[in-house]
């Protein structure tokens, strides 16, 4: 029962009228978002001159791939009833770390491995703080985000922007190349989406994550290794952030740490929430991320072409996010008798 978490299974198992209602609306939400995305795409194609140009489509795809990979990482954590606000900081700082190492003479592959190691260490520390010390995930990840960013700005690098060393075509290929006519970032996004899909649906740990997100006390009583699984969630999201960072760095041949101060992390949250992964955990999957990514990617790209200023874009995005939160709250109202104390 706990393991089954697709909307269909909830409906068929008949856990009550409200669950049926919720799942039916949940299904429509995903569908609505998908239809919206198609409508938006058609609208932009018809009204914006540059929208269908190959340069723009490439740009769109690259951004979408990066956003999608980050969202995949966030999705894993949110399904397990957590949240990871450190994604962007980890992404920017780990790649900066790799690049700085490479510029100091390390082989780039070795530097990348060290960067990945940094990500995993940070993720394990963060997961430990959340799972064992029991600090609320939002605080732990927020504070780790600040610490990692401070580490990047104060210790690892002196400059905000660090360029990838020359003659690294194989690396740049990750961001700029294509295979069978489809850009590599999309391949990477697709592969990681498939891998995460298989992980979440077919492996024991994937099922554990759903169980933990659904009801952590029950999961613990059932005998699931709750705490190690929570650490695993954050390691996974960190690895996804690192992958996204590779794609970003490869496509522009540099890594800009100021990205941490942007509202990228809210875009990621937006993708996850709009896609239909409830913040209360245990619901949703990779498909929701794909749908959400397409919509948000289109929206961001369209606004950029329409020449909305950065602030106005932020305003629009955050208003959309707020609306998504309100809809989420109206569709899944929290009950005074069953909601958890101190759940902020």
């Amino acid at each position: 029962m706990i393991m089954e978490s697709t909307p269909q299974s909830l409906t068929s198992s008949g856990t009550g009228k409200s669950a049926k209602m919720g799942s039916r609306i949940g299904l429509t939400q995903e569908l609505i978002v998908f239809l919206l995305a198609i409508a938006l795409f058609t609208y932009f194609s018809l009204t914006l001159d540059n929208f269908l140009s190959s340069a723009n489509i490439l740009n769109l795809i690259r951004n979408v791939a990066m956003l999608g990979m980050l969202s995949l990482g966030m999705a894993v954590v949110v399904i397990g009833r957590g949240v990871d606000l450190s994604l962007v900081a980890v992404m920017a700082v780990s790649l900066t770390f790799s690049i700085v190492l490479a510029n100091q003479g390390y082989a780039f592959s070795a530097a990348l491995v060290l960067g990945l190691a940094l990500v995993i260490v940070v993720a394990i520390i963060m997961g430990f703080l959340i799972a064992y010390v029991e600090i609320p995930a939002i605080f732990a990840t927020l504070a780790v985000s600040a610490i990692v960013y401070g580490l990047g700005r104060g210790v690892i690098a002196t400059l905000d922007v660090n360029n990838v060393p020359d003659n690294l075509d194989w690396f740049l290929f990750l961001g700029r190349g294509s295979f069978l006519g489809i850009p590599i970032p999309i391949w990477l996004f697709a592969i990681s989406a498939l891998a995460l899909y298989l992980f979440l649906r077919r492996t024991g740990f994937g099922r554990f994550i759903y169980a933990i997100g659904d009801n952590i006390s029950t999961a613990r009583i059932t005998g699931i290794p709750v705490r190690p699984t929570i650490i695993l969630q954050y390691v996974l999201s960190g690895v996804m952030a690192f992958l996204a960072g590779c794609v970003t760095a490869a496509s522009v041949a540099s890594m800009n740490m100021r990205m941490v101060n942007s509202t990228l992390i809210y875009d990621v949250l937006l993708v996850v929430i709009l896609g239909g992964i409830g913040l209360s955990g245990g619901r949703g999957g990779v498909r929701n991320v794909l749908v959400g990514t397409v919509l948000i990617g289109l929206l961001l790209n369209g606004m950029t072409i329409l020449d909305f200023s950065y602030t106005v874009q932020n305003l629009v995005k955050s208003t959309v996010l707020l609306c998504a939160l309100i809809v989420d709250a109206l569709l899944n109202p929290r009950d005074e008798q069953t909601s958890q104390q101190g759940d902020i």
Partner: peptide, 10 residues
């Protein structure tokens, strides 16, 4: 520097 102090606060 700003970076370190944000780190310390964190």
């Amino acid at each position: 520097s700003g970076g370190i102090s944000s780190m310390i606060l964190g």
